[in-house]
Amino acid sequence: MLIYALKRLGLAVLVAVVVSALAFLLLRASGDVAIALAGEGARSEDIDNIRRIYGLDRPLVVQYLDWAAKMIRGDFGTSLFFKTDVHALVLDKMPTTALLALFSLIFALAVSLPLGILAALYPNSWIDRLCLALAVIGQALPSFFFALILMIVFAVMLRWLPVSGSDSWAHFVLPTVVLGYYIAPAIMRLVRAGMIEVLASDYVRTARAKGLSSRSVVLKHALRNALVPVVALSAVQLGFLLGGSVVIETVFALDGLGYLAFQSITHKDLPVTQAIVTLLSLIYVGLTLAADLANAWLDPRIRVGGGS
């Protein structure tokens, strides 16, 4: 187990380094930051000045190493656009995004668990078909479009909820539904598949044979086993939710990390974009690592396979 864990950890660190380097290079390749910073009507000497002030005239490798070394010490630099500490900026916006991701995950689980179980209990029935339809729609519908539909119905026409902003819990309802609905299908299908497999297994047949109630068999015996992969998937989906909220936060003007990412991309604010991309990929890598380790701990077959 230890060897497996160390190998996984090593891999995770490698992925993190590669991702940070890629993020750095791709963002640099996207255009001249100094020109973007200088804005409309700037003269060439202004642009040169900006290039010098921000150290954009140094070789790329030097810029990357400098940035990476500082980042390890927790210094993400200064925002080119807001001119404030990136670290503080990101910390300020993080709670909104974390809250939204958590709410969305809870919403997704609350929808997908019961539906997944029902679909597994009555395969090929109308309930199963309905769940499949919901899953397909959820995966096919662009999130911004779904967001606008909800906005029209619940905010503009019914006036039950605010259109945009992040001042109160009510502002989180629509974004939570949109974001949660987006990841629910994957969880639902996994629950369904897991349940069908487990329900057909010997020990469930034994449990039934012992005369246990159907409710007890499904919830206590079957679900617990079927949930193992769901826990892992949820952890990974949480990472996805943190990163995937860029569109949702922008549409709902929620003042979180996704919105900040959108702003920083629009303004070519490299330090902020880099910090967010790196931070989110680190969280993602961390969550994947945690999920891998949890799975290996729960299911010895994985760590044997992974260690071979």
């Binding site: 606008l148 905010a155 503009v156 945009s164 549409v251 709902f252 919105y259």
Partner: peptide
């Protein structure tokens, strides 16, 4: 940031 959201805010009285 989203123009459509602004339109929705105007229509919703926000």
């Amino acid at each position: 940031p989203d123009r459509q959201t602004q339109v929705a805010e105007m229509m919703a009285g926000g």
